[in-house]
């Protein structure tokens, strides 16, 4: 197994961990940050798979715009998730 394959497997595991964290956390701002980190790692994975166009689109839309819109929505509503 080459170094690149190991790096890709590590990034995929981190993506899954970030997504699980985004569902599991009760503080919605931290959850949004976890989702943005997962999206940024997905952009890195796209770059490693030789798709830089998709990587730029994913980093711009997924990591920046979605996070900003969620942060705005949390600012308008409430921060803690209700049980």
């Amino acid at each position: 197994m080459t170094l690149l394959a190991v790096l890709q497997v590590v990034i995929l595991i981190l993506i899954v961990a970030g997504s699980v964290l985004a569902v599991w956390l009760k503080d919605l701002l931290a959850s949004v940050i976890a989702l943005g980190a997962s999206s940024l790692l997905l952009a890195l994975q796209f770059y490693l798979l030789q798709a830089p166009d998709v990587a730029i689109a994913e980093a711009g839309v997924g990591a920046a715009l979605t996070t900003a819109i969620f942060v705005l929505a949390i600012r308008k509503t409430q921060r803690k998730e209700e049980e």
Binding site: D53, A55, I56, A64, L65, A68, L72
Partner: peptide
Amino acid sequence: PGGGFQGGAVAASAVALLL
């Protein structure tokens, strides 16, 4: 790499940061 959609999304993230 890149293009119209990607560049527009990157520029719109500046608006998101301002907001």
